[in-house]
């Protein structure tokens, strides 16, 4: 029996990420004329059956094991490899989290199959899967053809697609899938788990981000004050994180956080492509910069030419007055 066309694999991600992946998976499965399944590793998210139905999933496969949930990738790779051997899917999709970046390439190497990271779009051409991915820090897009053994793997960038429910809802069942992880010995031990403090940039609806235009570390508070007045989160460009004006966890961009707020205010940021990778999915970008030729104005819906040191406090006052 041939397996499902597409399996969207998720663990430990937000509902919006799952919805994006299921939307992309449904489109690709449709173009391949096959079924989309959703594989959940670890705890089943709240309302999983409902989400699966709305997004046109044929069925939910659920793998739960005490060995999943640690930071190491060994258990995930073993579970996914067994699943692929048993279920023979054509294409496996992942949200590109840090855990997926650790596990998915290992899975590809174990199975001897192809993988594309940073995937943005997938289409099929005569049965060959063609994947568009970002490259050169967002300066270009590369289109790859996947060949050879299946399953083929694609790790999908955040915000690659907008979630869209299926035209016709399905009524999927949850199937428990047993895997044997008895032989897995996790060699990687977590000494200090990541600290989760405060709201995440990735989830923020409003972000105010500052760059070199702030001129001094002390002025980062102007960014924080506007963010607070708008009920948002403060972000930073890489140069000022490197200089210690802001914390690495606040960095937006290729080597930092990939965000998707409704409103992104870039203050004193030039708009290098590496930064734009982290905020180009924002619905509305506002640029504040003294240089009218700064690249950021090409990306912004609204631009204000001027010194952010004067404009930020003015915006904070205006936001508080609303």
């Amino acid at each position: 029996m041939s397996g499902p066309a597409v399996v969207a694999c998720t663990w430990g991600v937000a509902t919006s990420d799952i919805e994006e992946l299921l939307t992309l998976g449904r489109t690709v499965a449709g173009s391949l004329g096959g079924e989309l399944r959703w594989l959940v590793l670890g705890a089943l998210p709240e309302g999983a059956t409902d989400t699966a139905g709305r997004f046109g999933v044929g069925g939910v496969d659920h793998i739960e094991d005490a060995k999943l949930g640690t930071s190491g990738s060994d258990a995930y790779v073993a579970a996914l490899a067994q699943y692929c051997t048993d279920s023979t899917p054509q294409l496996l999709l992942f949200n590109q989290t840090f855990q997926v970046r650790d596990a998915a390439p290992r899975l590809a190497a174990r199975l001897g199959v192809g993988i594309v990271m940073n995937g943005i779009a997938i289409e099929q051409d005569g049965g060959t899967l063609r994947v568009t991915a970002s490259a050169f820090g967002g300066d270009t897009r590369t289109v790859y053809d996947l060949a050879g053994a299946t399953p083929q793997l694609v790790s999908v960038s955040a915000n690659a697609v907008a979630p869209e429910a299926a035209a016709t809802a399905t009524n999927p069942e949850v199937r428990k899938v047993a895997v044997d992880l008895g032989a897995v010995e996790e060699r990687v031990r977590v000494v200090t788990p990541p600290k989760r403090e405060g709201p995440r940039l990735e989830d923020a609806q409003t972000i105010v981000a500052g760059g070199r235009g702030l001129a001094d570390a002390a002025n980062f508070k102007l960014v924080e004050e506007l963010a607070a007045a708008l009920g948002g989160v403060a972000g930073a460009s890489r140069p000022i994180v490197d200089d210690g004006w802001a914390d690495p966890s606040q960095q937006v961009g290729l080597t930092g956080k990939i965000t998707r707020p409704g409103l992104y205010i870039a203050a004193g940021i030039s708009g290098a492509s590496q930064h734009m990778v982290g905020c180009s999915a924002a619905k509305t970008i506002v640029a504040i910069n003294t240089d009218p030729d700064a690249a950021i104005f090409k990306h912004a819906r609204y631009g204000l030419v001027g010194d952010c040191l004067e404009i930020l406090p003015e915006l904070t006052r205006a936001a508080k007055a609303r």
């Binding site: 001897g112 199959v113 192809g114 993988i115 594309v116 063609r130 568009t132 970002s134 490259a135 967002g138 300066d139 270009t140 897009r141 590369t142 289109v143 790859y144 053809d145 996947l146 060949a147 050879g148 053994a149 083929q152 180009s280 970008i285 640029a287 009218p292 104005f297 090409k298 990306h299 912004a300 819906r301 609204y302 631009g303 204000l304 030419v305 404009i311 003015e314 915006l315 205006a318």
Partner: peptide, 23 residues
């Protein structure tokens, strides 16, 4: 190779926005 490059493309350009005069 399991993965071959078919072509490269520039990223889609975003429509330029408007410059506003004041806060």
């Amino acid at each position: 190779p399991r993965v071959t490059i078919t072509k490269m493309e520039p990223p889609p350009s975003r429509e330029a926005g408007k410059i506003v005069a004041s806060v």
